[in-house]
Nucleic acid binder design. Structure first.
Length: 292
DNA sequence: AAACCCCGCAACCGCGACCGT
DNA sequence: CACGGTCGCGGTTGCGGGGTT
């Protein structure tokens, strides 16, 4: 609303981050924890705006990030959640803690959206009745599925980007040796930690596993609870606000079955339980694109 | 081999929400 | 309650790499 961009100031650098900048940022966050982004450029001397620092951290430097291929299961989750929540990438990302919202958004826009178009155009004449659905028009988001090529397609080829991460890892290694991991002071803003759901273990891209080892400070796990609560609330709100419009009958029936359970419970059950009907629907969808 | 085109991804931008004063 | 500052989210852009001609 007329507020000038935070990055308009002179001397604020834009564009790709250098490994050196990454090291500075990571070192600072290791010491102070994520959050209070406003003070990051000041305290680190980085010629970046606070937004840029936060973005760099959440989308690339944050530990536990998985890069590269999306598995069919991840794809199915995204399809499910997009159908449920719409373009709430942050909410979707909270169910795929190793993926960033940006990653998911990009993947949706570059892969899944196209598949939707292909699928819809191909089925405009055929109007298939998906199992478990009463009407294809009532659940339009399900009108597409997995392209075999997508999951197997290498998405992160060897680039200077990956080598940058390795450089950072190398440089950080020496830093870590002489700097025992401090206990980052948590900041009040829960939103800062929305994506910090998996700082421990998990599979990361091969170029990042070294990095992850360096970055796996356990105390960040404390942020989990607030994230889950937030997600639960937002999902519940979405379901209520939209009157279940985006939720097909399978979910409605599940909701009735689980009406004593919190919404998150049934949603997670729906998403994760391989035996649920809706899961079967997705599997059906995932099988469809082989014809394209 | 060079030029061109397409695609994927990292980063930026603008806006709304939230929080403290 | 109003206002200003900060943060997070979603949409968009632009660059670089790979593929094609």
């Amino acid at each position: 609303m007329g507020r000038p961009p935070c990055c308009d100031k002179d001397g604020i650098k834009k564009g790709p981050w250098t490994p050196e900048e990454d090291i500075i940022l990571v070192s600072y966050i290791q010491e102070h924890g994520p959050g209070n982004w406003r003070s990051v450029p000041t305290n680190t001397g980085l010629q970046r705006c606070s937004k840029s620092c936060r973005l760099r951290w959440t989308n690339y430097l944050r530990p536990g990030i998985k890069r590269g291929n999306f598995t069919p299961h991840e794809e199915g989750m995204i399809i499910h959640l997009q159908a449920l929540l719409g373009n709430k990438w942050a909410a979707i990302a909270s169910y795929l803690p190793q993926r960033t919202d940006n990653d998911i958004k990009n993947y949706w826009n570059t892969h899944l959206k196209k598949k939707l178009k292909r699928f819809q155009s191909a089925f405009q004449t055929q109007e298939p009745q998906l199992p478990g659905t009463t009407s294809t028009s009532s659940s339009p988001h399900y009108k597409f599925g997995n392209d075999d090529n997508v999951a197997t397609q290498p998405q992160l080829t060897s680039t200077c980007y990956a080598s940058s991460t390795e450089n950072i890892s190398r440089l950080l290694e020496s830093w870590m040796k002489c700097s025992p991991i401090s206990n980052p002071k948590h900041h009040d803003n829960d939103d800062n930690n929305n994506n910090n759901t998996s700082y421990h273990g998990g599979c990361v891209g091969e170029q990042d596993d070294h990095f992850e080892t360096l970055m796996s400070f356990d105390n960040l796990n404390d942020h989990k609870e607030s994230m889950v609560t937030t997600t639960c609330d937002s999902v519940e709100e979405d379901i209520i606000n939209e009157g279940g419009n985006k939720v097909n009958e399978n979910i409605d029936s599940m909701e009735e079955d689980d009406e004593n359970n919190p919404p998150l419970t049934f949603l997670e059950k729906w998403l994760l339980d391989e035996s649920t009907t809706s899961r079967q629907v997705t599997e059906e969808i995932l099988r469809l694109p082989s014809m394209f």
